[in-house]
């Protein structure tokens, strides 16, 4: 479902990604590790078209991304099937928690209001935040906000979920509540790509670990081989 072939990207003339190739695990968790600046987040952002690249190609959830500017229509289609969770949550501060989760199904999939609402409430219950539906994001803790962000991405029923350092912005006391949610998703067979520095989590969750160093795949294999 995820295939990256010789992906090459430059920034200011320097290679950020240098002929990266990998194949994600269908129904499994692909974990990207490596030192800061190694290209993990850039690769992840290429996977849903937030970044363009100069060489190679990507196939993800049946969509194809090629070199050069992406077409708006193509990206729009791709992103319905590929969800993303950011390091900084990026919840919409002017909307309630429930409206954050309902917005995309209503606006993009044109799901009727009642159906979108019950689906959103189910997801919020699933991440343990059903009672916070009416709250504003700013009133939630970081861990709670990140769980809302996960519910928001899941509301589109994506075939692939991308996580960009989902616990890096959190106090250590809050990382487990977020990781537990991600682990639950993994057990349910959700195809995921996770960028993380948390080796403990990588060991527990990863089906495949890929180490990126200086824009190249240094090693890849099962967690116990790499970490």
């Amino acid at each position: 479902m995820i295939e990256v072939e010789s992906l090459t990207k430059h920034r200011a003339g320097l290679p950020v990604l240098d002929a990266v190739s990998l194949r994600g695990v269908d129904g499994g968790v692909t974990v990207l590790v490596g030192p800061s600046g190694g290209g993990k987040s850039t690769l992840l952002r290429c996977l849903n078209g937030l970044e363009t690249f100069e060489g190679g190609g990507i196939t993800i959830a049946g969509h194809r991304l090629a070199v050069g500017p992406h077409s708006d229509v193509g990206l729009h289609e791709l992103r319905r099937d590929v969800g993303m969770v950011f390091q900084q949550f990026n919840l919409f501060p002017h909307l309630s928690v429930l409206d954050n989760v309902m917005l995309a199904p209503r606006a993009v999939l044109k799901v009727p209001a009642e159906e979108a609402r019950s689906r959103a409430l189910d997801l919020l219950n699933r991440v343990g935040l059903g009672s916070f539906a009416a709250a504003r994001p700013a009133t939630l803790s970081g861990g709670q906000q990140q769980r809302v962000a996960i519910a928001r991405a899941l509301a589109m029923r994506p075939r692939v979920m991308l996580f960009d350092e989902p616990t890096s912005a959190l106090d250590p006391s809050m990382t487990s509540e977020v990781l537990d949610v991600i682990m639950d998703l993994a057990k349910a067979g959700q195809t995921m790509v996770v960028v993380t520095h948390d080796h403990g989590f990588a060991k527990r969750a990863a089906t495949l670990v890929v180490e990126l160093v200086a824009g190249r795949v240094a090693r890849q294999g099962r967690a116990e081989e790499i970490l």
Partner: peptide, 11 residues
């Protein structure tokens, strides 16, 4: 990040 989050949701 707000714009990116919205785009990544398929908007």
């Amino acid at each position: 990040g707000q714009f990116e989050a919205a785009l990544s949701l398929g908007l």
